[in-house]
Amino acid sequence: MSTIAKTKTNKAVKPKKKKTAAYLAKQNKVAYFFAAPYFILFFVFTVLPVLVAVVLSFTYFNMLEWPTFVGIDNYINLIFNDDLFITAVKNTFVYAVCVGPVGYMLAFLVAWFINEITPKIRAIIILLFYAPAISGNAAFIWTLLFSSDSYGYLNGIFMYLGFIDEPITWLENTTYIMPVVIIVALWGSLGTSFLSFVAGLQGCDRSLYEAAAVDGIKNRWQELWYVTLPSMKPQLMFGAVLTISGALGVGASLAGNPSVEYAAYFISMHMGSYASERYEMGYACAIATMMFLIMIICNQLFRKILNKIGS
């Protein structure tokens, strides 16, 4: 790696650089064979979709005729003429702000709490917190709990305790849909990044804590901020990247689609509706491209914030 970097910056040895790259390529021919199967698939199913989306976003394409170039019309319509898109963006933003940062901090806090308790029961506690993320069928469980008749568990309990007189239609009421969807998402959000945090905390160098105690760190909160968090930056970054994809990629929700007055209507649903109902692939791809841009911006933002930790 370092050799390539060096030759790239050093323009004086240009003829040599080509030789070096070719030499390295020849020397490590076997590596290309090893990497090929994965990267062919990766190109076809990950890189190509992004490229296709960007290219098609400048066209009108209905899957039957050859795409026709329309310039930035799709984007103009999207931003200025599509009220539903704006609704979807607002909803996705609310959802992402709640599920992203809150879910991220929740994952870290739980991981930290787990690290503070006795190691004997850690494995069981980790399982309890991780299980919702892998059980998959979250939507079904929660429709039981939030069922809108008096047999729904929450309605039943609230009516029994006398908080409410008649059942609340949780998933058909515009005030409740979003909070319910967010709570359910948070419930299932302790996934891979949570495990990464748990592992990162276990791997923190113990001698750092001793040194910190000598240096005058007084309580566990100071220790968290000045010692633990800075030494966990790599895991925090990894978790942040996964959080972005989870929070902005919100697809189906238990409120169904379309939801009442589009109260739980997200960008990906808008994209889906243009693609599979109206066959306006160009327009759908413009939506996808916007989402790529938003994700990249969020990623940069996260990096900036994480660099402030411990200072």
Binding site: F45, A53, V241, S245, G249, S268, M271, A288, M291
Partner: peptide
């Protein structure tokens, strides 16, 4: 960062 939901349309085409 790019979840499968975002690439679903072009992925389907491919």
């Amino acid at each position: 960062m790019f979840s499968a939901t975002v690439t679903q349309i072009p992925s389907f085409l491919i």
